[in-house]
Design a protein around this nucleic acid. Structure first.
Ligand code: ZN
Ligand code: ZN
Ligand code: ZN
Ligand code: ZN
Lengths: 145, 145
DNA sequence: CAGTAAGTGAAAAATATTATCATTTGTAAT
DNA sequence: ATTACAAATGATAATATTTTTCACTTACTG
């Protein structure tokens, strides 16, 4: 995981944002996790180390991290708002374990043919898509036998 | 649109639900629309004709209609909970106009190859997906020039 | 070290959804 | 038709989620 404090500071400053301990704490929690996390979950994890951060700041920070492409906001099987470290820089999607929340990023969604076909058939101008795959990760799958 | 009152009544009764005027009103509003509607929007439309239906009943009714596969619950570009008449009976997805909300259903999402590849690579047991396409319908596209 | 704009926390407000409960009503059996 | 009763409803309250406001604090600049 190549997310040095320096790099974060750089990205924030580049865009005129200050590097506050709160922002650092939030990013640290997200960077440490390979599962998606809700704002509430992030709040709780942040609190274990740093108990004077308000939930509001979590929300505000997440908005900024999202804007700077440092995190992905995603739709989990059980909720429409959670966040992940953004690890691939290119267009990608998420395969999510509905039991433990673990996420595997994948590229190559390859919807262009479908989109072309539909654009032709419907005359829509298609400009985006939402795609998430759900399932059970190997660990949870074994555990459930 | 082949949604006769009789047919609705039948589906409801088959599953032990009563056919109330409220349920009929909700379904009528949804059946008349080719755009996705939020619970609030449905509430407002229902009220134009029938002002004594509570929002709670809208929610309850939508749950049931969803369970009976009479409506689709979907993710719109601007919100994670809206409803559409379910017109195709088979597995399908939605192409949504982000300006007017109009929805075109389409089948043939064809994610099986992708899912197979990922199942092999990740050892996940994949059991579902969320897919919505977004764009501008021909009318809104023209209007925006 | 200031000076200052940006950031923060606490609280309140705005939204969205679900639960509770007394009353009403659709249905089916008289 | 009348009745019996489980199911459904509306009003209200409760819960949950997200945003706004504002006085105070702090990270950055020079
Ligand atoms: Zn991602
Ligand atoms: Zn994609
Ligand atoms: Zn549909
Ligand atoms: Zn599909």
């Amino acid at each position: 995981m190549k997310l040095t404090a320096n790099k974060i500071a750089g990205v924030l400053r580049e865009h005129g944002y200050k590097l506050t301990p709160q922002r650092h704490a939030v990013l640290k929690v997200i960077a440490a996790s390979y599962a998606h996390l809700t704002p509430e979950a992030i709040y709780e994890k942040v609190h274990l180390e740093n108990s004077d951060i308000g939930l509001v700041t979590i929300y505000r920070t997440l908005d900024i991290l999202r804007e700077l492409n440092l995190v992905c906001r995603m739709h989990a099987p059980d909720g429409c708002r959670s966040y992940m470290m953004r690890r691939p820089t290119e267009h990608h999607h998420h395969l999510v374990c509905s039991s433990c929340g673990r996420v595997v990023d994948f590229a190559g969604c390859d919807l262009v043919d479908l989109e072309k076909r539909l654009a032709r058939e419907t005359r829509f101008e298609i400009n985006g898509h939402l795609l998430e795959l759900y399932g059970l990760c190997p660990d949870c799958n074994l555990a459930s036998r």
